[in-house]
Amino acid sequence: MRSRLLALAAGTFAIGVDAFVTAGLVAPVARDLDVSPSAAGQLVTVFALSYAVLSPVLAAATARFSRRPVLLAALALFVLGNVATALAPSYPLVLATRVVAAAGASMYTPNAAAVAAALAPPERRGRAMAAVMAGLTVANAIGVPLGTWVGGALGWRATLWLVAGLGAAALAGVALVVPDLRLPVPDGLRRRFAPLADRRVAAMLGLIMLLFAGFYALYTYLGPVLAPATGGDGGRLAVALWVFGTVSIGANLVGGRLADGLHPDRVRIGALAAFAVVVALVPLVRDDYAVTLLWAAVFGVPSWLQYATHLRLLVELAPGATPLLMGLNASAQYVGMGLGGALGGIALGAWGPASLGWPAAALVLGALAVTVATRRPRVPEPVPVSRGS
């Protein structure tokens, strides 16, 4: 079981590096392709929106196939897309190759989460999904700083070659240890998409979209946001990203245990409220490097604490539609990433990097409002009744 989850997590690690590393490569990409930092940041937007559109489409198209061939095809497409990005000579071609990489990523991550949920017993489902999603947090802790350093030392294209190599290694691991299994699929497209009629599903997808939009409105442009503290030095930025990612690993794993133990609303409401406060503090933490590192550590906690709870709730809403729900959830995440990258770029150009904490906080508060409005009512404990003789 552990080796299977590790193999699946290796794939999410490669995809996480690819999705997150742009935050540390905005400046070198802009210089090399002769575009503005805002335009370079739109590489995240194109990847995210492509992922968002393709994820549910590919989930429906591959629903009847066994999962292992789907996972292998997804990783192969992901590797091909990153090789093409590394070789692309112009900004338009770089954008086009990001679509190819996003197609592979959009097919892999939802299926990896669905397979983890299927492999685990119900009482450990949250921890199993958190273990696979740990690939994303490890990407933040190790892969993104490494990729940022490689991009600064050898050029941003070298980072894409690194990502392609990570994807190829994950493909080999999945081929070796992940079993070939089929997940239950309702007959007919109408029945497959029936969960969309559930208001609870729609609310959860809206919540995760707003949360990711708030996160990426800030995260995409962390380089310029933290420039007063880092002095524009790539090494100091890489350390801040490493601190953020390292703490995120622990937060994600703790979140898996919380998903299997606490009432979901306690986890989600507390985490989202804390996250809104953390991102709103940006104007106060960007001038001193020690304060910046402390903020980077806290920045990694709230969103990951609630993520496994979110995934478990989705699976429990419609167990027979897990691949589709994971695909729709990933789609909502990447719509949020694209929306956040676009709004962050607008705010960056209009008001400067110090302003980005405010739109990020507003979006996270929107996610909190959705959670509060749709929280699940507590079922009262039955009151023991004594029977008279």
Rank of each mutant, 00 (worst) to 15 (best):
G147E: 06
A350D: 11
L189P: 11
T137Y: 04
P377H: 09
A139I: 01
L181I: 08
G104S: 03
A164P: 04
V178C: 03
G214Q: 02
A10W: 01
V364N: 06
D265T: 13
P122R: 12
A84D: 04
L43T: 10
A172K: 11
V46P: 02
V225G: 00
V385R: 15
G81K: 01
A354W: 06
G147F: 02
A134R: 08
G232L: 07
D32C: 09
V138N: 05
L146Q: 05
L253E: 04
A276W: 06
P92H: 08
A175Q: 03
S50P: 12
V26L: 15
V138C: 08
L33W: 09
A240P: 02
A9R: 02
F65R: 13
G81H: 04
L183N: 00
L343Y: 05
R192K: 13
L154H: 14
R191W: 11
V26Y: 07
A202P: 10
N329A: 07
D287F: 13
R31N: 14
L176R: 14
W351A: 15
A9C: 03
L328N: 02
V115H: 00
A197R: 15
A112D: 00
T374Y: 10
Q333W: 12
A96R: 08
A120Y: 03
L339N: 00
P89L: 09
E123M: 11
I15D: 04
G320P: 09
A118V: 03
G152W: 02
A251D: 01
A105C: 09
A297D: 09
A9Y: 04
G338N: 10
L222Y: 05
P186G: 02
A369G: 12
P122L: 12
P110Y: 07
R200C: 10
L87M: 14
P359H: 00
L343Q: 07
Y51K: 02
V150S: 08
A280G: 09
R268C: 13
L136S: 13
Y91I: 04
P56S: 07
A153R: 15
G300I: 09
A369L: 14
I249F: 07
A240M: 01
L87A: 14
L160R: 13
D198E: 14
V282E: 00
A14Y: 03
I346R: 14
G245C: 01
W295N: 07
G143F: 00
D18M: 14
D288W: 10
V291R: 08
L33A: 13
V21I: 08
A73W: 06
P302A: 11
G167M: 05
P283N: 01
A308H: 05
A168T: 12
A131E: 11
L146D: 02
V83N: 01
R124S: 15
L317I: 10
I208K: 09
A103D: 00
W304I: 06
A88Q: 02
A113S: 14
V163P: 04
W242Q: 12
W242L: 15
A10M: 13
G235C: 10
A96T: 10
E123D: 15
A40Y: 07
V279E: 05
A88N: 07
D260R: 01
V185E: 02
L317G: 07
D233Q: 10
P56C: 05
R387Q: 11
A105W: 04
T109H: 10
V282T: 01
A116W: 06
G223D: 14
V99K: 03
E381P: 12
P382Q: 11
L258Q: 00
L80M: 12
V291K: 12
L368K: 08
R199H: 13
L77Q: 07
V17S: 01
G231L: 10
R98I: 03
